[in-house]
Amino acid sequence: MGKLKLTNLSKTYTNNVKALDSISIEISSGMFGLLGPNGAGKSTLMRTIATLQQPDSGSIEFNGLDPLSNPKEFRKSLGYLPQEFGVYPRISAQQLLDHLAVLKGVSSKKERKELVDYLLHKVNLYDKRNKSVKGFSGGMKQRVGIAQALIGNPKLLIVDEPTAGLDPGERNRFYDLISSIGEEVIVILSTHIVDDVRELCTDMAIMNHGKIVYNGTPQEGIASLKGRVFEKQINRNELEEYHANFQVISNRLIGGKPVIHVEGEKPDSSFKAIEPSLEDVFFSKLQNQS
């Protein structure tokens, strides 16, 4: 059972943005979802765990290892798919994966070939292994990205916003792949898409303004809001008034008219009680923080 423990991680950028604000969290094997709006500090956290960035303070421990002081050893257990995964021009998928496999320490040429072939099959790119990756579509590139992250039996897999720009079919195939990875591995999936987390993750955290505002399972989150979320369709010009009087956690348009979700006791009969979704949990946690 793998375990990643972050303690009091903080990072402030030179422009005074507090990207990480005393983050403490424990993650164990399985899929871990990290939700947060854009600019919440998710990527900073991912990069920090991936030893690509130094925190100003705090510590990390992974299976008894300190990645900050011994990054080399830690990197042997790491698979990382960054938010923006680019590729070299004029180089084929096979060559790219082979190169990265060498860097990850797969030193036997034969084993490397088998592994790369296996991964290419697995991500369904074997037929295109000799094509330049540069010409691949976003989904294909992302699959190359996951293939490289899986090289060398990682114990910790970090995937940062992997489905941005993918169509629904590509997205599903991508998640199929991720979820098929062994249960012994910690997978940290950073995303701002609530459904992704709901569908895949056993554990999750919500992050905003550099802080963890929620940490638990999706189910617990939903359960904590049970019976406390109500919905009402209102007129557009009433929106401000409702915001002032109720704790509106979200609003969206349905048929051109705003539908608001309110958290708390049922205000009046014009509101309809609903089953809370993970999205409500997400908005609720963000609201409560600010």
Binding site: A50, T51, L52, Y80, F85, V87, L100, L103, K104, A149
Partner: peptide, 17 residues
């Protein structure tokens, strides 16, 4: 090159000296 093609993070996170 690695940074221009945005592959630096992948390469950098591998265990090479």
């Amino acid at each position: 090159r690695d940074r221009d093609f945005r592959i630096n993070e992948v390469v950098d996170s591998t265990p090479h000296s």
